[in-house]
Simulated assay, not measured.
Amino acid sequence: MKCREGCGACCIAPSISSPIPGMPDGKPAGERCVQLSVENLCSIFGRPERPAVCSGFSADVEVCGNSQEEAIRLLGWWEQMTAA
């Protein structure tokens, strides 16, 4: 599956424990990443300071669904299911 440009669900729904520029402690689930633009695009995409977990994420219908709303719901569910 190709990533839906302008979705941004993967930058909102999951927690990220790695430091992010502007968020040295990472971000909690459900909080918008400070690097996510108003157009829902990653402002550090392709740059070395982008966390490896972000670079390693691949869009998949199982986690992204068919819309941004569905992606936020599914990613939120995966977050809850995998939280330690």
Rank of each mutant, 00 (worst) to 15 (best):
S55C: 05
P51N: 01
E31S: 12
S18M: 12
P24C: 03
E31V: 10
K2F: 06
G8I: 09
S17Q: 14
S15L: 07
P48G: 02
L41H: 09
E70G: 13
G65C: 08
S17H: 14
Q68F: 10
G26N: 06
A59S: 12
G76E: 08
V38Q: 11
N40I: 01
G8Q: 08
N66T: 13
M1D: 13
G56S: 09
G46M: 03
S43F: 00
M23D: 11
R4W: 04
R73N: 11
Q80F: 06
C33L: 05
C7M: 08
M81C: 05
P28H: 03
G30T: 03
S43K: 15
K2I: 09
W77C: 01
E49C: 01
I20F: 06
M23C: 04
E31A: 14
P19R: 01
Q80H: 09
R4D: 05
E31Y: 01
P24H: 04
R50A: 14
V61Q: 08
I16S: 03
I72Y: 06
S67I: 09
E39H: 10
R32S: 03
A13K: 12
P51Y: 01
K2W: 07
G6L: 07
G22C: 13
L74R: 15
P48N: 05
E49S: 08
S18E: 15
G30P: 00
P14R: 10
R4E: 09
M23K: 02
M81H: 06
S43L: 15
E39L: 11
C11W: 07
G30S: 04
G65H: 11
E31N: 03
G26Q: 05
S43P: 00
C10T: 07
C54V: 10
G22Q: 12
G46T: 05
F45A: 10
D60M: 02
Q80P: 00
A71E: 08
P48W: 02
P28L: 05
G65I: 09
C11F: 10
N66H: 14
I20E: 05
A9D: 07
C3N: 07
E70F: 11
A29P: 00
